[in-house]
């Protein structure tokens, strides 16, 4: 699903440049539940942005769903994002003046679906994350966990190939963290590829594969005990 070969990325800082990713090789197959771990500055967010087509890599190859990502313009990237990727952010990033239902339906708007159809599908997904009753509430009327579940519903609504989650539990307490992780697990069990970025050991342990990143290189990459037990 995601294949990365010798990926390099550096950011210019004044006259110098900061080499963030120093040759990453990573292959994530369809249906995997992967977490990227690393301290801040390890390059995990940069990796996610590149995988999420929000940023462009300097060197190396990136294949998404078998397609080589190269010379992306914004329009192409937007279409691919809409088609293949679903985003879950640490700060939820819901649009504050739209109800939960409208937020979930928004990606379908950009996909070009009719409103009725859109709202129907969105409601199905809200039901899936257990928030059907909250459909007409604005984000600021929801708790953090609820917001993140709305965000997950929004990420799923276009039936993407990969869900990218950037510190999805970073702003949540342990109780809601478990429920959000449980939701991601459920999604994965249905066959969706889930790609999580976290710096919390407990969160990473709930995924099936942990990739440790340090100073822009992968230092280890292993399957968790959980999968060994199963």
């Amino acid at each position: 699903m995601i294949k990365i070969e010798k990926l390099h990325k550096s950011y210019p800082i004044g006259k110098d440049s900061l080499h963030v990713l120093k040759g990453i090789d990573l292959h994530i197959k369809e249906g995997e539940f992967v977490s990227i771990m690393g301290s801040s500055g390890s390059g995990k967010s940069t990796l996610l942005n590149i995988v999420g087509l929000l940023d462009i890599h300097d060197q190396g190859n990136y294949f998404l769903n078998g397609q080589l990502i190269k010379n992306m313009n914004e329009k192409k990237a937007a279409i691919l994002r809409n088609k293949f990727l679903g985003f879950v952010f640490q700060s939820f990033n819901l649009i504050s003046y739209k109800t939960a239902l409208e937020n979930v339906a928004l990606p379908l708007y950009y996909k070009g679906l009719k409103r009725k159809e859109r709202l129907k599908i969105a409601l199905d997904y809200l039901e899936k994350v257990g928030l059907k009753e909250w459909a007409n509430h604005l984000p600021n009327e929801l708790s953090g966990g609820q917001k993140q579940r709305v965000a997950i519903a929004r990420a799923l609504v276009t039936k993407p190939k990969v869900v990218l989650a950037d510190e999805p539990t970073g702003a949540l307490d342990s109780g809601t963290t478990d429920s959000v992780m449980g939701l991601l697990k459920d999604i994965n069990n249905e066959g969706m590829t889930v790609f999580v970025i976290t710096h919390e050991q407990e969160v990473a342990e709930q995924t099936k594969r942990i990739v440790h990143l340090k100073d822009g290189v992968i230092i280890n990459d292993f399957l968790t005990k959980e999968i060994k037990k199963a």
Partner: peptide
Amino acid sequence: TKEIGIRRAIGATPKS
């Protein structure tokens, strides 16, 4: 800006 960023992330093209 942020809202536009979110929209872009979930598939809004620059044209839209």
